[in-house]
């Protein structure tokens, strides 16, 4: 029932993108997102699209999965396109009653659509090729300078990875409790909103109890292993840049430079 919801939809495969340091992928995604806002013309988008397509090809993740994320934002995409098309003033292409579609509007809508599609599929590459744990590791390392101003970077990263780790567990738990209560005749589907909220009690009470129990168990297990915060803590698999990571950075810089050049020379 709830199995269809995926957060952190890692797709295991053996590719160069999977093997890259997660920091590179994180920075790369940022650069890609920035670049689609720097590019401001269709030839520019073509370059960005080419870059995106080659990354998808390199990642060996079936493109089907890449575009799955798009389904979730389909409504948003449609609304953006329609509003841009109708509300941008300019040369009227055609009129339908009081609705005027302008040339500028069409171009604007096209650009926004391209940007949104690139934005979603670009970040999908990162989440599909990087495990949530690798991502939090990368964030911890990238944010480490903030330690100087007493931001507890390690603790925040730890909380994030625990939270991520618990999502599938709690999902499964919800599924189980839901089924158990349905087997006892509970009804989660019909009734008005107040009735439905009331019907959630047999699901939520056991779920909260189990979440607290799990949190308690985990805290005990961590203390039993003498866990204490970030100071002097080493990692089992410390992140280390390799040659391919430096190469990837070079490519990213070249790509960003191309984007800026396109903008400067108004290509």
């Amino acid at each position: 029932m709830l199995k269809d919801i995926t957060i952190g939809q890692y797709y295991p495969a053996d590719s160069i993108i999977h093997k890259l340091d997660p920091r590179v992928k994180f920075v790369g995604t940022m650069i890609f997102i920035v670049s689609i806002f720097i590019f401001n013309s269709f030839p520019g988008y073509f370059v960005a699209g080419l870059f995106l397509a080659s990354m998808i090809a390199l990642s060996k993740v079936p493109p089907k999965f890449m575009f799955k994320g798009l389904r979730a934002v389909f409504m948003l995409l449609m609304i953006t396109v329609i509003f841009n098309m109708v509300l941008t003033p300019g040369d009227i292409v055609f009129k339908l009653g009081f609705i005027k579609v302008t040339r500028e509007g069409l171009i604007m809508a096209g650009k926004m659509a391209v940007r949104l599609v690139f934005l979603i599929s670009g970040s999908s590459i990162m989440t599909l090729t990087t495990t949530p744990n690798q991502l939090t590791d990368a964030m911890e390392r990238l944010l480490r300078p903030l330690n100087r101003i007493h931001v507890p970077v390690h603790e925040i990263a730890m909380m994030m990875s625990i939270a991520l780790r618990f999502i599938p567990i709690l999902m499964e738990e919800t599924d189980k409790i839901m089924k158990a209560q349905i087997a006892r005749g509970a009804d989660f589907e019909s009734g008005n909103i107040i009735q439905r909220t009331k019907n959630m009690i047999p699901l939520l009470v056991p779920l909260f109890i189990s979440a607290f129990r799990r949190a308690n168990d985990l805290a005990l297990a961590m203390e039993a292993r003498c866990y204490h915060g970030g100071e002097n803590r080493t990692q089992m698999k410390p992140l280390k840049y390799e040659r391919k990571d430096y190469m990837a950075y070079l490519i990213l810089i070249a790509y960003l430079a191309a984007a800026i050049l396109f903008r400067v020379f108004k290509l």
């Binding site: 209560q181 087997a183 006892r184 005749g185 056991p206 189990s210």
Partner: peptide, 27 residues
């Protein structure tokens, strides 16, 4: 009727009798 593994995780009422009543009352 299906009793799940670790059925104790499905209990939610304030007292035992009310919890057992949940099923029959749904009927």
């Amino acid at each position: 009727g299906l009793v799940f593994q670790y059925p104790e995780h499905q209990l939610f009422e304030n007292d035992v009798l009310s919890d057992v009543c949940f099923g029959p009352m749904n009927q």
